[in-house]
């Protein structure tokens, strides 16, 4: 009789302790604060779709509009930001994008359907930030395809080219290789005036 009771007690203790262990595990289990929401294939597919990029003209059109649909985020460092930045732009240096407060702000924009427009020293810096935000699940983000100086200048550029456009002048190459491939090309090769794409950079000079 006594043994029987002991056995039941032991069992109960075992059950209770197992349950406690599991509950403890579940309570202390928490997902890491930041995790990738997109696998490499998905982020690659998004990288190949150029929808996320605004050229300087498109971006400038959004500057003056306080309709709350878009917000500019400056990802340069604090010093550059203090020197000059777009009106109403928020500063989040690239390095601090995953800080708690910044994540909170960005997530709240995302929830409200506000497009975050990133701009940086160059389009490359902006794409870095874009890639990192996309991967952790902040999706309503676009970048300015150009540098911040051009974005901030008051000069209107009508000839805005994307950073990822080839400016390689194949004619120059032809002149260089012509010594080796003399016979095939040549006669029709009249020296035309080549139009080099204009640089995006703003002219720094001023008048009177």
């Amino acid at each position: 009789m006594k043994e029987e009771l002991n056995k039941t007690k032991r069992l109960t203790i075992a059950v209770v302790s197992i349950v406690i262990v599991f509950i403890f595990g579940l309570l202390t289990f928490q997902a890491p604060e930041l995790e990738y929401k997109l696998n490499p294939e998905k982020i690659l597919a998004r990288s190949n779709n150029p929808d996320f990029s605004l050229n300087i003209m498109q971006a400038k059109e959004l500057i003056g509009k306080p309709d709350g649909k878009a917000v500019f985020v400056d990802i340069r460092n604090i010093i550059s930001f203090e020197r000059s930045h777009l009106e109403n732009a928020i500063n989040m240096p690239l390095r601090t994008l995953f800080d708690k407060s910044n994540q909170k702000t960005l997530k709240s924009f995302n929830k409200k359907g506000v497009t975050v427009i990133l701009y940086g020293e160059t389009a490359r810096q902006a794409i870095d930030a874009w890639m990192m935000l996309q991967q952790v699940g902040i999706q309503n983000v676009k970048i300015v395809d150009g540098n911040s100086d051009a974005l901030q200048s008051k000069v209107i550029h009508d000839n805005v080219i994307s950073t990822e456009i080839s400016t390689v002048d194949l004619k120059v190459l032809k002149t260089m290789t012509s010594s080796t491939t003399q016979s095939s090309e040549g006669t029709a090769e009249a020296p035309k005036k080549t139009v080099n794409p204009k640089k995006v950079e703003a002219s720094k000079g001023g008048g009177c």
């Binding site: 002149t175 012509s178 009249a190 005036k193 080099n196 720094k204 000079g205 001023g206």
Partner: peptide, 25 residues
């Protein structure tokens, strides 16, 4: 192919000039 070469060389020089950005007025 000297003559052809010369004309083409001129193009190169021309382009170099164009590439220089004018800074400041």
């Amino acid at each position: 192919g000297q003559s052809q070469q010369n004309t083409q060389k001129k193009t190169t020089i021309l382009m170099k000039k164009e590439a220089g950005a004018s800074s400041g007025g």
